[in-house]
Measured scan of single mutants.
Amino acid sequence: MNLTVNGKPSTVDGAESLNVTELLSALKVAQAEYVTVELNGEVLEREAFDATTVKDGDAVEFLY
């Protein structure tokens, strides 16, 4: 899956889609429990991480 992460191209191997929690784990995001996630310009509530799917071509920003 090809994404733009914090403005840079990134690839997650072996996945066509992941939820936000899985993406944080796959990318080994440090202190993931404290990060705010913006997906395609929309800031996500932490409670929505498990239910929100990240797909090929999406833009993700991790805000600390």
Results as ranks from 00 to 15, higher is better:
Leu44Ser: 00
Leu3Asp: 00
Ser10Asp: 06
Glu38His: 15
Ala26Cys: 12
Val12Gln: 03
Glu33Arg: 08
Leu3Val: 08
Phe62Ile: 15
Val54Glu: 00
Lys28Ile: 05
Leu3Glu: 00
Ser25Gly: 08
Val5Tyr: 03
Glu61Asp: 12
Val5Thr: 01
Lys8His: 10
Leu27Asn: 01
Asp58Trp: 03
Glu61Lys: 15
Ser17Cys: 11
Thr11Ile: 13
Pro9His: 09
Ala51Val: 13
Thr52Tyr: 06
Glu33Asp: 11
Lys8Phe: 10
Gly41Ile: 04
Tyr34Pro: 04
Val5Arg: 00
Asp58Cys: 05
Glu16Gln: 13
Glu16Arg: 12
Thr21Ala: 08
Ala15Asn: 08
Glu45Tyr: 09
Leu27Ser: 00
Thr52Asn: 03
Leu24Tyr: 00
Ala26Thr: 08
Glu16Val: 14
Gly41Lys: 04
Val35Lys: 03
Glu47Asn: 12
Leu18Ala: 03
Gly41Pro: 03
Leu63His: 14
Gln31Pro: 08
Gly57Ile: 02
Leu39His: 03
Glu16His: 13
Asn2Thr: 14
Thr21Ser: 09
Met1Arg: 03
Val60Ile: 13
Val54Tyr: 02
Leu44Glu: 00
Asn40Trp: 03
Gly7Arg: 05
Leu23Ala: 02
Gln31Phe: 15
Asn2Pro: 02
Asp50Trp: 08
Leu27Val: 03
Gly14Leu: 08
Leu23Ser: 00
Glu22Ser: 08
Ala48Phe: 11
Glu22Arg: 09
Asp56Trp: 06
Gly57Arg: 04
Val35Asn: 03
Val35Arg: 03
Arg46Phe: 07
Leu27Phe: 07
Ala48Asn: 12
Thr52Glu: 03
Glu42Val: 15
Leu24Asn: 00
Lys55Arg: 12
Asp56Asn: 11
Glu47Gly: 10
Arg46Pro: 08
Thr21Arg: 09
Asp56Tyr: 05
Phe62Trp: 09
Leu39Glu: 01
Thr4Pro: 01
Thr53Leu: 14
Asp56Thr: 10
Glu38Tyr: 15
Val20His: 02
Leu44Arg: 01
Val60Ala: 02
Thr11Ser: 09
Leu63Cys: 14
Lys8Met: 11
Tyr34Trp: 13
Ala48Pro: 01
Met1Gln: 02
Lys28Glu: 06
Thr4Phe: 10
Val60Gln: 01
Ser25Lys: 14
Ala32Met: 11
Gly7Ser: 05
Ser25Trp: 12
Asn40His: 02
Val35Ile: 10
Phe62His: 02
Thr4Gln: 06
Thr36Lys: 09
Leu18Cys: 10
Thr53Phe: 15
Asn40Ala: 02
Phe49Asn: 00
Val29Asp: 02
Glu33His: 10
Thr4Trp: 12
Tyr34Leu: 12
Val60Phe: 09
Thr36Val: 12
Gly41Ala: 03
Asn40Thr: 02
Thr11Ala: 08
Ala30Gly: 09
Asn19Cys: 07
Phe62Cys: 06
Val60Ser: 03
Leu39Lys: 02
Ser25Ile: 15
Thr52Leu: 05
Asn2Tyr: 11
Lys28Ser: 09
Glu38Ala: 15
Phe62Gly: 00
Val12Thr: 04
Leu3Cys: 05
Leu39Asp: 00
Lys8Cys: 15
Thr11Glu: 06
Thr52His: 06
Tyr64Glu: 07
Val54Pro: 01
Leu63Glu: 09
Asp50Gly: 10
Lys28Arg: 12
Glu22Gly: 09
Leu27Glu: 00
Glu22Phe: 06
Asp56Glu: 09
Glu22Lys: 09
Val12Arg: 03
Glu38Pro: 00
Ala26Val: 13
Val60Gly: 00
Asn2Ser: 12
Gly14Ile: 08
Glu47Val: 08
Glu22Thr: 08
Val37Glu: 00
Asn19Leu: 06
Ala48His: 11
Thr36Cys: 12
Ala51Arg: 14
Ala48Asp: 10
Glu61Cys: 14
Asp58Ala: 04
Ser25Cys: 13
Leu24His: 00
Glu33Val: 07
Gly7Thr: 03
Glu38Thr: 15
Pro9Gly: 05
Glu42Asp: 07
Gly14Ala: 09
Gln31Lys: 11
Val43Phe: 07
Gly14Gln: 07
Tyr34Lys: 08
Arg46Trp: 07
Leu27Ala: 00
Asp50Gln: 08
Ala30Lys: 11
Val20Thr: 01
Val37Asn: 01
Glu22His: 06
Ala26His: 11
Pro9Tyr: 08
Thr53His: 11
Ala26Arg: 13
Asp13Trp: 15
Leu24Met: 09
Val54Lys: 01
Glu45Leu: 13
Phe62Ser: 02
Ala26Ile: 14
Val54Gln: 01
Leu44Thr: 05
Glu16Asp: 12
Thr11Asn: 08
Leu3Asn: 01
Tyr64Ser: 08
Ala59Arg: 14
Leu63Gly: 12
Ala59Lys: 14
Val5Ser: 03
Val20Arg: 00
Tyr34Asp: 07
Ala30Tyr: 13
Asp13His: 15
Thr53Val: 13
Val12His: 05
Leu63Met: 11
Val35Glu: 03
Ala59His: 13
Glu33Tyr: 09
Glu61Met: 13
Ser17Glu: 09
Glu61Gln: 12
Gly41Asn: 05
Pro9Arg: 09
Val54Ile: 10
Asp58Arg: 00
Arg46Asn: 06
Val29His: 04
Lys55Ala: 06
Val29Gly: 04
Thr11Phe: 15
Thr21Trp: 14
Lys55His: 11
Ser25Asn: 11
Val5Glu: 02
Asn19Lys: 06
Leu18Arg: 05
Glu47Ala: 13
Arg46His: 07
Val43Gln: 08
Val60Arg: 01
Gly57Asp: 04
Phe62Glu: 01
Val54Asp: 01
Leu44Val: 15
